[in-house]
Protein backbone atom coordinates (compact mmCIF):
# COMPACT_ATOMS: atom_id res chain seq x y z
CA UNK A 1 0.00 0.00 0.00
CA UNK A 2 2.74 2.40 1.03
CA UNK A 3 4.74 1.34 -1.99
CA UNK A 4 1.83 1.96 -4.29
CA UNK A 5 1.22 5.46 -2.96
CA UNK A 6 4.94 6.20 -3.29
CA UNK A 7 4.78 5.06 -6.91
CA UNK A 8 1.63 7.08 -7.51
CA UNK A 9 3.28 10.14 -6.01
CA UNK A 10 6.38 9.63 -8.10
CA UNK A 11 4.35 9.42 -11.31
CA UNK A 12 2.27 12.47 -10.33
CA UNK A 13 5.37 14.54 -9.66
CA UNK A 14 7.18 13.69 -12.87
CA UNK A 15 4.26 13.03 -15.20
CA UNK A 16 3.30 9.60 -16.54
CA UNK A 17 5.67 9.52 -19.50
CA UNK A 18 8.80 10.84 -17.79
CA UNK A 19 8.09 8.92 -14.59
CA UNK A 20 7.73 5.63 -16.46
CA UNK A 21 10.85 6.33 -18.48
CA UNK A 22 12.91 7.01 -15.34
CA UNK A 23 11.59 3.89 -13.63
CA UNK A 24 12.27 1.71 -16.65
CA UNK A 25 15.69 3.17 -17.33
CA UNK A 26 16.82 2.82 -13.73
CA UNK A 27 15.42 -0.70 -13.44
CA UNK A 28 17.06 -1.73 -16.69
CA UNK A 29 20.36 -0.24 -15.61
CA UNK A 30 20.27 -1.85 -12.19
CA UNK A 31 19.01 -5.23 -13.29
CA UNK A 32 20.60 -5.84 -16.67
CA UNK A 33 23.80 -3.83 -16.42
CA UNK A 34 24.72 -4.40 -12.79
CA UNK A 35 22.92 -7.15 -10.93
CA UNK A 36 22.58 -9.84 -13.60
CA UNK A 37 26.14 -9.58 -15.01
CA UNK A 38 27.58 -9.66 -11.50
CA UNK A 39 25.45 -12.66 -10.61
CA UNK A 40 26.67 -14.32 -13.79
CA UNK A 41 30.23 -13.57 -12.74
CA UNK A 42 29.65 -15.07 -9.31
CA UNK A 43 28.15 -18.12 -10.99
CA UNK A 44 31.19 -18.37 -13.28
CA UNK A 45 33.58 -18.04 -10.39
CA UNK A 46 31.99 -21.02 -8.66
CA UNK A 47 32.41 -23.44 -11.58
CA UNK A 48 35.14 -25.71 -12.84
CA UNK A 49 37.03 -24.76 -15.96
CA UNK A 50 35.54 -27.37 -18.23
CA UNK A 51 35.82 -27.84 -21.99
CA UNK A 52 32.68 -26.80 -23.86
CA UNK A 53 31.62 -30.42 -24.37
CA UNK A 54 31.43 -31.13 -20.64
CA UNK A 55 29.59 -27.94 -19.66
CA UNK A 56 26.19 -28.82 -18.31
CA UNK A 57 27.41 -32.40 -17.85
CA UNK A 58 27.70 -34.36 -14.57
CA UNK A 59 31.08 -32.72 -13.74
CA UNK A 60 29.65 -29.18 -14.02
CA UNK A 61 28.98 -28.58 -10.32
CA UNK A 62 29.60 -25.62 -8.06
CA UNK A 63 32.98 -25.44 -6.33
CA UNK A 64 35.23 -23.08 -4.37
CA UNK A 65 38.22 -24.40 -6.31
CA UNK A 66 39.00 -21.02 -7.94
CA UNK A 67 39.00 -19.17 -4.60
CA UNK A 68 41.06 -21.96 -3.07
CA UNK A 69 43.53 -21.58 -5.93
CA UNK A 70 43.98 -17.86 -5.21
CA UNK A 71 45.03 -18.62 -1.63
CA UNK A 72 46.84 -21.97 -1.91
CA UNK A 73 47.89 -22.21 -5.56
CA UNK A 74 48.22 -25.49 -7.46
CA UNK A 75 47.97 -28.73 -5.53
CA UNK A 76 51.37 -29.78 -4.28
CA UNK A 77 52.61 -26.16 -4.15
CA UNK A 78 55.75 -26.29 -1.96
CA UNK A 79 55.09 -22.84 -0.40
CA UNK A 80 51.76 -23.92 1.06
CA UNK A 81 50.15 -20.70 -0.25
CA UNK A 82 49.89 -18.90 -3.58
CA UNK A 83 52.86 -16.60 -3.12
CA UNK A 84 52.64 -15.09 -6.61
CA UNK A 85 48.94 -14.21 -6.85
CA UNK A 86 48.46 -13.11 -3.25
CA UNK A 87 51.66 -11.10 -3.49
CA UNK A 88 50.46 -9.30 -6.61
CA UNK A 89 47.12 -8.72 -4.95
CA UNK A 90 48.70 -7.25 -1.81
CA UNK A 91 51.05 -5.02 -3.78
CA UNK A 92 48.17 -3.77 -5.92
CA UNK A 93 46.07 -2.80 -2.89
CA UNK A 94 49.01 -1.06 -1.21
CA UNK A 95 49.99 0.73 -4.43
CA UNK A 96 46.40 1.82 -5.06
CA UNK A 97 46.19 3.16 -1.50
CA UNK A 98 49.46 4.99 -2.04
CA UNK A 99 48.21 6.52 -5.30
CA UNK A 100 45.03 7.60 -3.46
CA UNK A 101 46.93 9.33 -0.67
CA UNK A 102 49.31 10.95 -3.15
CA UNK A 103 46.32 12.20 -5.10
CA UNK A 104 44.67 13.60 -1.97
CA UNK A 105 47.83 15.46 -1.01
CA UNK A 106 48.14 16.95 -4.48
CA UNK A 107 44.46 17.76 -4.98
CA UNK A 108 43.50 19.21 -1.60
CA UNK A 109 45.41 22.50 -2.04
CA UNK A 110 44.07 22.81 -5.60
CA UNK A 111 40.48 22.18 -4.50
CA UNK A 112 40.83 24.56 -1.55
CA UNK A 113 42.21 27.30 -3.75
CA UNK A 114 39.50 26.76 -6.34
CA UNK A 115 36.72 26.70 -3.73
CA UNK A 116 37.71 29.42 -1.28
CA UNK A 117 40.38 31.67 -2.77
CA UNK A 118 39.95 31.95 -6.55
CA UNK A 119 37.25 34.32 -7.72
CA UNK A 120 35.29 34.71 -10.95
CA UNK A 121 37.43 34.49 -14.07
CA UNK A 122 40.40 32.98 -12.29
CA UNK A 123 38.28 30.12 -10.94
CA UNK A 124 36.73 29.48 -14.36
CA UNK A 125 40.11 29.39 -16.10
CA UNK A 126 41.41 26.99 -13.46
CA UNK A 127 38.43 24.66 -13.81
CA UNK A 128 38.84 24.58 -17.60
CA UNK A 129 42.58 23.95 -17.23
CA UNK A 130 41.79 20.96 -15.03
CA UNK A 131 39.25 19.50 -17.46
CA UNK A 132 40.86 20.05 -20.87
CA UNK A 133 43.75 17.54 -20.43
CA UNK A 134 41.10 14.83 -20.08
CA UNK A 135 40.11 15.30 -23.70
CA UNK A 136 43.27 13.33 -24.46
CA UNK A 137 42.32 9.65 -24.27
CA UNK A 138 43.66 7.37 -21.58
CA UNK A 139 45.95 5.29 -23.80
CA UNK A 140 47.53 8.33 -25.38
CA UNK A 141 48.06 9.91 -21.96
CA UNK A 142 49.71 6.74 -20.66
CA UNK A 143 52.05 6.58 -23.64
CA UNK A 144 52.89 10.25 -23.18
CA UNK A 145 53.90 9.47 -19.60
CA UNK A 146 55.98 6.57 -20.84
CA UNK A 147 57.83 8.91 -23.14
CA UNK A 148 58.28 11.58 -20.46
CA UNK A 149 59.64 9.05 -17.96
CA UNK A 150 61.62 6.99 -20.50
CA UNK A 151 65.38 6.60 -20.43
CA UNK A 152 65.73 9.36 -23.03
CA UNK A 153 62.61 11.23 -21.88
CA UNK A 154 62.32 14.88 -20.87
CA UNK A 155 62.96 14.23 -17.20
CA UNK A 156 66.04 12.08 -17.62
CA UNK A 157 67.56 14.26 -20.33
CA UNK A 158 66.99 17.39 -18.21
CA UNK A 159 68.59 15.80 -15.15
CA UNK A 160 71.49 14.52 -17.27
CA UNK A 161 72.05 17.90 -18.90
CA UNK A 162 72.01 19.64 -15.53
CA UNK A 163 74.56 17.14 -14.28
CA UNK A 164 72.38 16.05 -11.36
CA UNK A 165 72.63 12.39 -12.43
CA UNK A 166 75.19 10.49 -14.49
CA UNK A 167 73.00 7.64 -15.66
CA UNK A 168 69.31 7.79 -16.61
CA UNK A 169 66.95 6.70 -13.84
CA UNK A 170 64.69 3.78 -14.73
CA UNK A 171 61.39 5.38 -13.68
CA UNK A 172 59.45 2.58 -15.34
CA UNK A 173 61.10 -0.22 -13.40
CA UNK A 174 60.78 1.72 -10.15
CA UNK A 175 57.04 2.11 -10.85
CA UNK A 176 57.36 5.89 -10.50
CA UNK A 177 55.92 6.34 -13.97
CA UNK A 178 52.98 4.12 -13.02
CA UNK A 179 52.20 6.02 -9.82
CA UNK A 180 52.49 9.34 -11.62
CA UNK A 181 50.29 8.11 -14.48
CA UNK A 182 47.62 6.70 -12.18
CA UNK A 183 47.73 9.75 -9.94
CA UNK A 184 47.34 12.05 -12.89
CA UNK A 185 44.52 9.98 -14.38
CA UNK A 186 42.28 10.49 -11.35
CA UNK A 187 43.06 14.11 -10.43
CA UNK A 188 39.59 15.27 -11.48
CA UNK A 189 37.85 12.52 -9.53
CA UNK A 190 39.61 13.78 -6.44
CA UNK A 191 39.43 17.52 -7.06
CA UNK A 192 35.70 17.77 -7.68
CA UNK A 193 34.36 15.99 -4.60
CA UNK A 194 36.85 17.98 -2.51
CA UNK A 195 35.85 21.19 -4.26
CA UNK A 196 32.17 20.45 -3.68
CA UNK A 197 32.70 19.91 0.01
CA UNK A 198 35.03 22.85 0.63
CA UNK A 199 32.98 25.20 -1.49
CA UNK A 200 30.01 24.87 0.85
CA UNK A 201 32.10 25.89 3.87
CA UNK A 202 31.09 29.33 5.12
CA UNK A 203 34.05 31.71 4.70
CA UNK A 204 33.22 33.21 8.06
CA UNK A 205 34.18 29.91 9.70
CA UNK A 206 37.67 30.30 8.33
CA UNK A 207 37.84 33.95 9.31
CA UNK A 208 36.46 33.25 12.78
CA UNK A 209 39.15 30.62 13.37
CA UNK A 210 41.78 33.05 12.16
CA UNK A 211 40.40 35.82 14.34
CA UNK A 212 40.57 33.50 17.36
CA UNK A 213 44.29 33.04 16.82
CA UNK A 214 44.50 29.99 14.57
CA UNK A 215 47.57 29.83 12.29
CA UNK A 216 46.82 28.75 8.71
CA UNK A 217 47.61 25.08 9.15
CA UNK A 218 45.42 24.80 12.24
CA UNK A 219 42.54 26.31 10.26
CA UNK A 220 42.91 23.40 7.86
CA UNK A 221 43.29 20.63 10.42
CA UNK A 222 40.56 21.91 12.73
CA UNK A 223 38.01 23.54 10.43
CA UNK A 224 38.38 22.77 6.72
CA UNK A 225 39.47 19.12 6.78
CA UNK A 226 36.80 17.94 9.24
CA UNK A 227 34.18 19.80 7.23
CA UNK A 228 35.42 18.32 3.95
CA UNK A 229 35.54 14.76 5.33
CA UNK A 230 32.61 13.44 3.25
CA UNK A 231 34.18 14.93 0.12
CA UNK A 232 37.56 13.46 1.00
CA UNK A 233 35.98 10.05 1.53
CA UNK A 234 34.05 10.27 -1.70
CA UNK A 235 37.14 11.29 -3.70
CA UNK A 236 39.39 8.72 -2.05
CA UNK A 237 36.87 5.92 -2.57
CA UNK A 238 36.56 6.64 -6.26
CA UNK A 239 40.28 7.03 -6.82
CA UNK A 240 41.11 3.92 -4.82
CA UNK A 241 38.54 1.74 -6.56
CA UNK A 242 39.53 2.95 -10.01
CA UNK A 243 43.27 2.76 -9.33
CA UNK A 244 42.98 -0.78 -7.97
CA UNK A 245 40.89 -1.72 -11.00
CA UNK A 246 42.99 0.11 -13.60
CA UNK A 247 44.28 -1.93 -16.50
CA UNK A 248 45.60 0.29 -19.28
CA UNK A 249 48.00 2.36 -17.15
CA UNK A 250 49.67 -0.67 -15.49
CA UNK A 251 49.93 -2.38 -18.91
CA UNK A 252 51.69 0.57 -20.44
CA UNK A 253 53.53 2.15 -17.50
CA UNK A 254 54.08 -0.79 -15.18
CA UNK A 255 57.56 -2.15 -14.62
CA UNK A 256 58.34 -5.49 -16.27
CA UNK A 257 58.68 -7.32 -12.98
CA UNK A 258 55.64 -5.83 -11.25
CA UNK A 259 52.19 -6.97 -12.19
CA UNK A 260 48.96 -5.23 -11.25
CA UNK A 261 46.24 -7.58 -10.05
CA UNK A 262 43.97 -6.60 -12.94
CA UNK A 263 46.64 -7.86 -15.31
CA UNK A 264 46.36 -11.27 -13.65
CA UNK A 265 42.59 -11.19 -14.12
CA UNK A 266 43.01 -10.13 -17.73
CA UNK A 267 45.46 -12.96 -18.23
CA UNK A 268 43.05 -15.55 -16.82
CA UNK A 269 40.30 -14.40 -19.16
CA UNK A 270 42.21 -13.85 -22.36
CA UNK A 271 45.47 -15.75 -22.16
CA UNK A 272 44.68 -18.81 -20.07
CA UNK A 273 41.04 -18.57 -21.22
CA UNK A 274 40.04 -19.70 -17.75
CA UNK A 275 36.94 -17.59 -17.24
CA UNK A 276 35.88 -19.17 -13.94
CA UNK A 277 39.22 -18.34 -12.33
CA UNK A 278 39.25 -14.85 -13.89
CA UNK A 279 35.77 -14.26 -12.51
CA UNK A 280 36.81 -15.46 -9.06
CA UNK A 281 39.83 -13.14 -9.04
CA UNK A 282 37.72 -10.19 -10.18
CA UNK A 283 35.24 -10.84 -7.40
CA UNK A 284 38.04 -11.15 -4.86
CA UNK A 285 39.28 -7.72 -5.95
CA UNK A 286 35.80 -6.19 -5.80
CA UNK A 287 34.97 -7.60 -2.37
CA UNK A 288 38.37 -6.75 -0.89
CA UNK A 289 38.25 -3.15 -2.14
CA UNK A 290 34.68 -2.68 -0.91
CA UNK A 291 35.53 -4.07 2.52
CA UNK A 292 38.62 -1.90 2.76
CA UNK A 293 36.66 1.22 1.84
CA UNK A 294 33.95 0.41 4.39
CA UNK A 295 36.60 -0.20 7.02
CA UNK A 296 38.33 3.11 6.35
CA UNK A 297 34.98 4.93 6.41
CA UNK A 298 34.26 3.35 9.75
CA UNK A 299 37.67 4.42 11.08
CA UNK A 300 37.03 8.01 10.00
CA UNK A 301 33.41 7.89 11.14
CA UNK A 302 31.86 8.76 7.79
CA UNK A 303 28.44 7.33 6.95
CA UNK A 304 27.63 6.15 3.43
CA UNK A 305 24.83 8.73 3.06
CA UNK A 306 27.17 11.64 3.72
CA UNK A 307 29.24 10.87 0.64
CA UNK A 308 26.35 11.74 -1.61
CA UNK A 309 26.19 15.26 -0.19
Amino acid sequence: MAKRSWLGGFLDRNGQALGLYILLAVSFWLLFLIILPQLAMIDFSLRHDLPAAQQGGPQDVWTFENYRHFIFGLPGNPDGWNRLDVGVFGRTIVAAAFVTILNLVICYPVAYYLAQVARGRQARVMAVALVVPYWVNEILRAFAFRIIFGATGVINSTLLTLGIIDLPIDFIRADIALYAGLGYAYVLLMVFPLYNAIESLDRNQIEAARDLGAPWWRIHTRIVLPFAKPGITSGCTMVFMLAAGALAAPQILGGPSNLWFTQLIYGQFFESVNWPRGAAYAIILLVACTLLVLLVMRLFKVRLGEIGK
Binding site: D202, N204, Q205, E207, A208, A209, R210, D211, L212, G213, A214, P215, I223, P226, F227
Partner: peptide, 20 residues
Protein backbone atom coordinates in the same frame (compact mmCIF):
# COMPACT_ATOMS: atom_id res chain seq x y z
CA UNK B 1 49.30 42.78 11.95
CA UNK B 2 47.03 39.86 11.10
CA UNK B 3 43.63 39.25 12.72
CA UNK B 4 45.07 36.36 14.73
CA UNK B 5 47.66 38.71 16.28
CA UNK B 6 45.40 41.63 17.23
CA UNK B 7 43.82 42.12 20.65
CA UNK B 8 40.41 42.09 18.98
CA UNK B 9 37.76 39.41 18.66
CA UNK B 10 35.03 39.58 16.06
CA UNK B 11 31.49 38.33 16.41
CA UNK B 12 30.16 37.59 12.96
CA UNK B 13 26.73 38.49 11.68
CA UNK B 14 25.94 34.79 11.19
CA UNK B 15 27.96 33.99 14.36
CA UNK B 16 30.11 31.46 12.43
CA UNK B 17 30.07 28.96 15.28
CA UNK B 18 31.83 25.72 14.40
CA UNK B 19 29.11 23.12 13.71
CA UNK B 20 31.35 20.08 14.09
Amino acid sequence: IGPNKRPTALIFQNLALFPL
